[in-house]
Design a protein around this nucleic acid. Structure first.
Lengths: 238, 238
DNA sequence: GCAAAAGTGTTAGGGGTACACCCATGC
DNA sequence: GCATGGGTGTACCCCTAACACTTTTGC
């Protein structure tokens, strides 16, 4: 075996964030408008370089707090995947680790960081390519959304999309929006209420144009004993 | 906000492998005996530094082929997690990405690489600390095994533990070994046979001290439509 | 009262679990 | 025949899906 090219590559590492939320019935993701080259003026996922003394998780949490007003500890910030293609960043050898975060419906993004402007934009348009993203961020977003869809099945993170107090219907709309399907109101209601630790009643009610809805907050449980599976379109392949 | 410590950390990256297999009814993992400091003489997971021009996946695949005779493309080599604690490697700032690989029962590990000696050792002893591992490799192994356990539920990777031709009973033993539970022979048999693309019959039979068992090979499907869930010990908490 | 949205009841069917039973081979 | 492990049948139960029905509010 030849001994050439045994050099160790030295790299810089970034954490890129896919901060998902739901606005106006759409699944959206936090993006920044790039203020400088490369990809100047384009949308990009927020992110930044790891600094001395930090872990990557530290980096991701710091960037999240710089971009949003959210205290990141509450919403499960979680590694998704590492992207290390040599040409993925024209500035040099930069490896990135993507993170998934879920933002509740309330707070608007703050643009007071060095990122020019931060906003939540529709995920669908980014994934189908009609709205371009810088670097390989479309691919990164795609994988993060896939993970979010899968996690809705086995965990209680759907409650992280909601305000501190929410109705069962609002929780159902989270599932319907992220999965892109319609769910049976009645069965969903029962399933959620019967899953121990998923939600707990606050005793308050929300008054709308119908019967008032009971309000709930996040329960203690992080995982679902019995998963809420994505309805399988009953593919009839012979 | 102070502008100190905005420096970008520069690091080296490694890929560390958790190559799982089953030997003599035990779940085992490929380890090497470290030939030099730090942790000289200790067990460690195989791995190595990313080289110029490589992606991390390239690195992992190259290391796998150096350590085993297995063609890595066939068994799903997959990222697990990134470890970036500053003090995790006494040689300097080294970030590692762990990979999970599944090795079939047949080939013995080859020790012809620079790693002193490679061998498959019992996972249980490494996880409970009775057999120490270098660096943070115990933690890395723990997470990789967790992922493997979870993936058995939703994917067909269990067949990667088996030889090219295997019986349903052998496949069941994979589940029982990795999960550490006993499964019902009859129900497992049906479930596997009725899962489209999980296994396909070769027409051959294996003759033992009873009725001959039909032999199967891996099917086309990578994921299971209906998962094989780990039996929940029916926790009777009040 | 009527519309609207929340929440409950009910029934049919599918899949999992447990376990009894039959099958094919070696000895 | 008998032991041994492979494979099938079956009854029960729980979960799910589908949908009818009741409840509570605003107007």
């Amino acid at each position: 075996m030849p001994t050439r090219s045994r050099a160790r590559e030295t790299v810089q590492i970034t954490a890129d964030l896919a901060v998902l939320t739901i606005r106006q019935g759409e699944l959206r993701v936090l993006v920044v408008n790039r203020g400088k080259e490369p990809f100047k003026g384009m949308y990009a996922l927020p992110g930044g370089f790891m600094r001395p003394g930090e872990t990557l998780d530290d980096t991701a949490l710091r960037e999240l707090q710089e971009e949003t007003a959210i205290e990141g500890g509450t919403l499960g910030l979680e590694q998704v995947h590492v992207y290390s293609t040599p040409e993925r960043d024209p500035r040099g050898r930069i490896v990135t680790c993507s993170y998934l975060a879920i933002a509740p419906n309330l707070p608007e993004p703050t643009a007071d960081s060095d990122a020019a402007a931060a906003s939540y934009v529709n995920v669908a348009g980014l994934l189908d390519g009609s709205v371009p993203l810088a670097f390989d961020h479309r691919e990164i977003l795609e994988r993060a959304v896939e993970l979010a869809r899968a996690k809705l099945q086995y965990t209680t993170i759907a409650t992280s999309f909601c305000a501190p107090e929410f109705t069962i219907s609002e929780l159902r709309e989270v599932y319907e929006t992220v999965w892109g399907v319609e769910l049976d109101r009645a069965n969903f209601h029962r399933k959620v209420r019967e899953s121990p630790g998923f939600v707990e009643p606050t005793g308050n009610k929300r008054f709308t144009s119908g019967r008032p809805a009971a309000l709930y907050r996040q329960g203690r449980s992080r995982s679902l004993d019995r998963p809420l599976l994505i309805p399988s379109h009953d593919e009839m392949e012979i």
